[in-house]
Simulated scan of single mutants.
Amino acid sequence: MRFGHHFLSVMLGVIGILLGIASLPIWGESVTPQLAPLEHLRIGFAWLSIGLLMVTLPLRRFLAALVFGLIAFLNLFYLLPTFLTLDRGAPPPAAQHFTLLHANIWNRNPTTDAIAAMVNRERPDIAVMLETFHGLQEPWLPALDLHWPYRADCGAAGCANLILSRWPLTILGQNSSWFNAKGSPATLAVRVHHPAGDFTLVATHLAQPFDPVFQAQEGAWLARYLLTLPPPLVVTGDFNSAPWSPLIRKLEQQAGITRIARTGPTWPSGPLNPFGIPIDHMLGGPGVSAANVRRLPPFGSDHLALLAEIALTPQAVGPAKPAGEGGGTAALVPTP
């Protein structure tokens, strides 16, 4: 019995040390591939530490309970600010607004019929689809309703981003790291010609955090690029980064945008989702907000899709202009 108590104490101590070290706010800036992803796992760390706290209290292991309580507090300190400022209801009546669907469809999605079914069911005004490596030849596109006559992809740049729209689009820029400069993310920027006024929409997909130096380069490139685009600005993408990570915080600061759609984890989409990571984000520049934000049911991808109502403060906007770094000549998407 004494050995069992001693063994339990040792195990709780080892778990506490490892979990405490993993929860330290230092790994997001790490250049070590094995350590950088730890910063994005805070939801899992929080659940684990709270569970261990609940286990150790009845066992009267008060020192261990204190340690796990402090670890839970540390993780919640970073988590809660990214979730608390949530949906504020319907957008102001005077604001220009539209519904936006964002989905990383996963290039290995075995149920392509479910992709078209989801888009047809939700009927957003604009749909941004990532990992569409066949571009305008995606096999599920013919099954869509005629609700989205305007479609844009990256063409030769091969960024695997696709935008479907009710309204005309002008392509401002198409970019991918293999086609353009290394260290620049897969990005498609368009000017949407909404009846109430134009706005810029950017779809982007950053690298995974297992190469933190490369991912940081992509974030810095994206921040510079967004500053070259005409407002109002809406950005949606798979950033492969949690909202509390240094990458997202720096992007918001450097590009003058904020995360407007705050949800729970979007990856993975399966049973482990409650312990996962919010890596799909919608962000907006000044005058842009989101309401009625929700995660959609699984559709065969390893990500959950996001749907939100985006509101834009009325403001005068100029004509579309060529994108800056990584961009090309603005080109109107022809009417089908």
Rank of each mutant, 00 (worst) to 15 (best):
F7S: 09
F7M: 09
L18N: 07
L19N: 07
L19K: 05
L19S: 10
G20F: 02
W27I: 08
P33L: 04
P37T: 10
P37S: 10
L38K: 04
R42A: 01
L48N: 01
G51Q: 06
L57I: 13
R60C: 11
A64G: 09
F68I: 14
L70S: 15
L70I: 15
A72M: 14
N75W: 12
L84Y: 14
H97E: 13
A103V: 06
I105N: 10
R108T: 14
T111P: 03
V119P: 01
E131Y: 01
E138S: 11
P139G: 10
W140E: 02
A156P: 06
N175I: 08
G183K: 07
S184A: 15
V190W: 01
V192D: 01
G197L: 04
D198A: 15
E218P: 02
G219T: 05
Y225A: 03
V234L: 04
V234A: 00
G237R: 00
N240D: 13
W244R: 09
S245L: 06
L251K: 06
Q253A: 15
G256V: 11
I257F: 11
T258M: 13
A261S: 15
P268Y: 03
P268S: 05
L272W: 04
P278W: 02
L312P: 10
K321D: 00
G326W: 04
